[in-house]
Amino acid sequence: MNILVCITHVPDTTSKIRFTDENTQLDKAGVQFIIGPYDDYALARAVEIKEQTGGSISVLNVGEAETEPTLRKALAIGADEAIRVNAFPRDAHFVAKQIAHQAKEKSYDMILMGRESIDFNGGMVHGMVGELLGIPSISPVMKLEIEGNTAKMAREIEGGKEFIEVGLPFIAGCQEPIAEWKIPNMRGIMSARSKPLQVVDAVSADPRTATKTYELPAPKGEVKIVADVDQLVQLLKNDAKIL
């Protein structure tokens, strides 16, 4: 199987989010960047599928040079080659156009993505690429098995799951427990250095949305610690007016 895995380069889940330049830019000072956790599930499952079926894994990121260490990490985890589309990922539509263009050039058996990026949380890029390529896109996928030319998957729905069968090629937006995150080992890290990381130009695509000013949520007030449940019930009833 030839698998394309699309990864984001995002602040670690424990990062404190701040903005600079009059709230028009993310403040990257002290922020650790990682492979998006959902993309990490997609990559882990791709590595397992490759172990079973053979083939090759390409990882792709649409981003500027700063994302290369994140692509190298994906190579260390088990991808065979990396592609960086050299552009600032202006919006989901712009990114989807880049991914679709790359996918049209090569013919992948499947494209695995994360269910959503954890910076903009859109959950949109996989559906857009699916529509651009005219192939099915399924998300969020929590189980994925390949049997011949058919993919069998479980998609999470509210309160349960749906079982889906689809022919190749397809796109899946992945989430746990599709696979366990893989930590690169020493051999992986060493070999990642010599694996190809190709930088390609972006194709032209109009972004359709524009981020303007950022804002942080209002700070939370002090917690009120109560002595017993009766006091809690009174507060919920009289102050919060919930019960």
Partner: peptide, 23 residues
């Protein structure tokens, strides 16, 4: 916004040449 809504909206953004904002 929901797991189905997101997936449907994304495909529609292409079909309708639309600008999509989620959340």
């Amino acid at each position: 916004k929901s797991s189905l809504g997101d997936a449907v909206a994304a495909r529609l953004a292409i079909k309708l040449n639309a600008g999509l904002v989620s959340n």
